[in-house]
């Protein structure tokens, strides 16, 4: 016979309840009331926690979303409205003129294609190099692996402008000036270190037993990687791909230094709306809004994979 002593939400001691014993009806009714009170207390606690979480989430959304919303609203403003002093959030008069100006500008469509080409190549290059590198580092744990993963971060420690000009010169000297492949390689130097680090943390989270089991079932080491490990870290690969894609899609400095007529990407075209003779806010924000659509769609499309990837990294150890 077990006796449980329960604590009421208000901190007082509840009456002892003896399991399996028939109690007087008043005592049973009292127990039900107390359980009901406990449940209501817990529910109320959950509700207030949930409300607090929603408030925090809403605040975070406003904090992160406001700059984008302001950009979006500005893209629908008339020229004089975009430079209003003091600035207004909503357009006084809504117009699509900025979109017509921005999209009608020479070279905009070509710049979108160039951005997409560059970002896709850079993402694939990053993954092709980062996945085996990260796997080798995490599984073999050699001293040189540890040095390598630290050394991979060195390129992130140097200001991009310091390597941008030499890179542009090198690309020109091998005949790759003004080509998306040259820019993709340059972008890979940015995304590769981050990709290796990200993938390493995802591989760390995969138990070795899985690979060993696959080996017992007849898989080679590479077979186990391809058939077992990679499917498990597919969420992590999606996260890494998104980061690599974004790093290339939004990159400006290398694109400015290394592209001209053939391969100019959209961030440079967007910057061209700021000239020495004025700043066309409306067209600049319109093109920036359009340029962000593919990234938003891609993120929504891969949302489940991203969440899975993030939680994969969170449960390691």
């Amino acid at each position: 016979m077990r006796v449980a002593e329960r604590t009421r939400p208000d901190g007082g001691k509840a009456a002892a309840v003896t399991a399996g014993t028939s109690l007087p009806s008043t005592t049973q009714a009292g127990g039900r009331r107390r359980r009901s009170v406990n449940r209501e207390g817990l529910e109320a606690g959950k509700r207030s926690t949930r409300t607090l979480l929603w408030i925090l989430l809403a605040a975070a959304m406003v904090l992160y979303g406001f700059p984008f919303l302001y950009l979006l609203f500005t893209s629908f403003k008339t020229p004089i409205d975009t430079i209003a002093v003091p600035p207004t959030i909503l357009p006084k008069e809504w117009t699509l003129e900025n979109y017509a100006n921005a999209l009608g500008r020479n070279g905009v469509l070509a710049s979108f294609i160039n951005s997409a080409q560059t970002a896709v190549i850079s993402t694939v290059l990053s993954l092709v190099l980062a996945v085996p590198a990260a796997y080798g580092i995490t599984r073999y744990k050699t001293p040189s692996g540890r040095v390598f993963i630290m050394a991979a971060l060195v390129t992130r420690m140097v200001p991009p402008v310091a390597i941008g000009i030499p890179l542009a010169t090198m690309m020109a000297s091998v005949g790759l000036a003004d080509t998306p492949i040259a820019l993709s390689i340059a972008h890979t130097t940015i995304s590769l270190p981050l990709s290796i680090w990200l993938m390493s943390s995802f591989f760390e989270a995969v138990p070795r037993d899985l690979e060993e089991a696959a080996t017992v079932d007849g898989c080679s080491r590479l077979g186990a990687l391809w058939r077992v490990v990679i499917p498990v870290v597919s969420g992590g690969i999606a996260v890494t791909a998104i980061f690599a894609f974004l790093a290339s899609w939004n990159e400006f400095l290398f694109a400015l230094l290394m592209t001209a007529i053939r391969s100019q990407t959209t961030p440079v075209v967007i910057a061209n709306f700021q000239t020495q003779f004025g700043l066309d806010w409306g067209s600049m924000t319109a093109l920036a809004a359009v340029y962000s659509i593919p990234v938003i769609l891609l993120t929504l499309l891969l949302q489940r994979k991203i969440v899975a990837g993030m939680t994969l990294g969170a449960v390691k150890g």
Binding site: Q117, I121, A177, P180, I181, S184, I261, R262, S263, Q264
Partner: peptide
Amino acid sequence: VALAATGCGAGGPSST
């Protein structure tokens, strides 16, 4: 596809 198109980029003729 991207690599195939990369030879010239989408912006037009050679810049050199």
